[in-house]
Simulated scan of single mutants.
Amino acid sequence: MTKAAEKVSREILLDGLVDCVDLPRIHWLVEQELPNADATELQAVTISVIRTLVEDGLVETGYPDNGEFVSEPLEDSLEELQRSYIAQYHEPIAWFGRLWLNLTDKGVAAATATPEGRRVAEHEKKRSESSPRTPDNC
């Protein structure tokens, strides 16, 4: 994995401590790391990061539904990315909301193994304790 992809992966794990991470956010993180990349490279790195995180057991793909995360197999998610993110790339509305990542227990452990991750997790814990609403998953 390239340094850019590693940095994006770390950011996804930190973001995942707060909420599910959607495709536009992942794509944006890749754009920030590779500002001179063309669309094909941005897509390739974005998909590579997603695949690696799933294969490493750190995240699951799927979508939020009524406060719950509905997992989907990686292959189904990759097919959806092909139909929307790749085929309709220049129409972002077509791929917004098509894929979400949710941290697994292993992903939470990896994210909180760093000082920044522990800080984010502690902040979220305090925020959820002081919030009158019931925290949901995504």
Rank of each mutant, 00 (worst) to 15 (best):
F69E: 04
I93Y: 14
E80K: 14
L99D: 07
Q82F: 04
K106M: 07
S77P: 03
R83H: 15
W95A: 02
A121P: 11
E72K: 14
G62K: 09
W95G: 01
A109N: 10
L101S: 02
L103D: 01
W95L: 01
L74K: 04
S71K: 14
S84D: 04
P64H: 09
E60D: 12
E68I: 06
E68N: 07
R83V: 10
R118F: 10
I93W: 14
K106C: 05
L103F: 01
G97R: 12
R83P: 00
G107R: 02
S77A: 15
W95Q: 00
K106N: 07
V70P: 00
N102W: 04
Y63I: 05
V59Q: 00
R119M: 10
L101A: 04
T114I: 06
E80M: 14
Y63N: 10
R98T: 01
E122Y: 03
E60S: 11
P115E: 15
A94E: 07
H123M: 02
A111L: 05
G107V: 11
Y89A: 00
Q82A: 03
E116Q: 11
T112N: 09
L74M: 09
V120C: 11
F69L: 05
G97H: 13
Q88G: 06
H123T: 01
Y63T: 05
F96K: 12
W95E: 01
G97Q: 13
E72T: 13
P73Y: 00
E75M: 08
W95R: 00
W100F: 15
E79K: 10
V70Q: 13
A113G: 14
D105Q: 05
G117I: 00
S84V: 03
Q82R: 03
G97I: 10
E75K: 08
A110F: 06
G117F: 05
R83N: 15
S71G: 08
E80A: 14
R98G: 00
L78K: 06
I93Q: 13
K106S: 08
I93A: 15
W100A: 06
F69D: 04
D65F: 12
E75I: 11
E60H: 10
A110H: 09
E60Y: 07
